[in-house]
Amino acid sequence: MLTAGLDIGSRTIALVEWDGMHIVRKEVVFTGIDPLKKSQQLMAGKHYDASVATGYGRHLASVNTLANCVITEIKAYAVGAHQLFPDVRTILDIGGQDSKVIQVKPDGAVANFEMNDKCAAGTGRFLENMALALDLNIEQLGPHALEASGKGVVLSSMCTVFAESEVVSLIGRGEDSHSVALGIHQSIVNRVCAVVRRVGYHPRFVFAGGVALNPCMRQLIEHELKIPVSVPADPQIVGALGAAIQAANNLSGKKN
């Protein structure tokens, strides 16, 4: 058996191929302006017994027959995280343009969830813009912040546009760029943890999505929530993995 899980997100597309037991292939590419073409290229020449799409482009994939079923990112992350950590009870996913907190029942089903609102504050997009303002790559931003000697600078703006000008003026005032970077992370963590507390959280706490690649975010979240945080080896493919497993479950008629 070979199934595919396709997660078309706002910033990246992830594909996972699943044989019922193992991940046999995984890919992460940038979404760009033609996500359908990118997805078709990823899946070209392959035959899947079933495929499930998730993410913002899930219906796009489905109507173009790349997937025979769609599930939301909420469910996909729950299924994927449950596969990687069978004792998961809370998932925090921070992606390119949204963040979500999912409470999971012991059997892996979604018990409750909350998402960010219309605005992209508190998401990967915010970090990308801030990295740009500090003249860093997104990969450099987290390590850069971890080198701060003291506390982070307090950032008062949550809006991405206002925060960018605030960062520019902080640098202009002579603040250390490491402390500014730390402050940037702290401001996102404050916002995200407020949502986590609202939904409620229990161990095991899994942090996934592209932003989980950032080591500073993980440290600050652990510190803020006072709970160990597990980050999957490949945090960007958790949704695609969940979709691929869902496709296999659909084939075997297993109840969700």
Partner: peptide
């Protein structure tokens, strides 16, 4: 974004 929330809510009903 509302569609995601609504679909995820409907997925919770089994």
């Amino acid at each position: 974004t509302l569609r995601v929330r609504i679909e995820a809510f409907l997925e919770m009903i089994n």
